[in-house]
Design a protein around this nucleic acid. Structure first.
Lengths: 97, 97
DNA sequence: CGCTTGCGCTACATTATTTGTAGCGCTATC
DNA sequence: GATAGCGCTACAAATAATGTAGCGCAAGCG
């Protein structure tokens, strides 16, 4: 009852939404509160942040970590791992711009 | 004279724009013409497609491959490589949704 | 030549999404 | 019981994406 579209298309759509990757990235070194996250993202509006958090929780990438705020779920951590190589590549890429 | 922000933040912003990852993904097995790309993306509007192509060319990820249409640049290919593990992960992720 | 076909792409009005600001309701601490 | 900070919502304004029509051009054909 799940997939209408290939999984890769689904995740590409999700990650293509504004702020989604950024939020995951900002949670890389542990949970943050709503307002910390807001500040970390360079003052994303609370409306958008909340909407993205709902989406990310629903997608099982982020979860409430009781009293610590929002943190990455195990799946979220895995996704972040996959993104690691991006860090090195990005520097190289930026130099050529 | 380049970076005001960390490279990773810059690429996250770029890839977070709607359709950007999708376009790169659709070019994975070779260049496509404007209209082929439009169809591959499930009928993205030409306005948006053109705007993204401009952005991607400017970011050196996509380039005009003479008479073949649009294709990934070497940097674009590298980026796509980094995304490979996403494919397997996405399937696992989708099952848990 | 004059006609058609398909291309890359633009114009532009409509619709959807994001932003920014103010502030509510709640809890904890004094 | 007053203050401070939190997560979060309301809502109007700004920005971005969409859909449709079609232009200008180049190639192929009769």
């Amino acid at each position: 009852m799940n997939q209408k579209r290939p999984a890769i298309a689904e995740i590409i759509e999700l990650l293509g939404k504004k702020w989604v990757m950024r939020i995951i990235w900002e949670l890389r070194s542990g949970p943050l509160t709503f307002r910390e996250l807001q500040a970390a993202c360079g003052d994303i509006s609370p409306t958008t942040l909340n909407s993205r958090l709902k989406l990310l929780k629903h997608s099982l990438l982020v979860e409430n970590q009781d009293s610590q705020g929002y943190g990455l779920s195990p799946l979220g951590e895995e996704l972040l791992e996959i993104y690691q190589p991006l860090k090195g590549w990005a520097i190289k890429w930026q130099k050529r711009l």
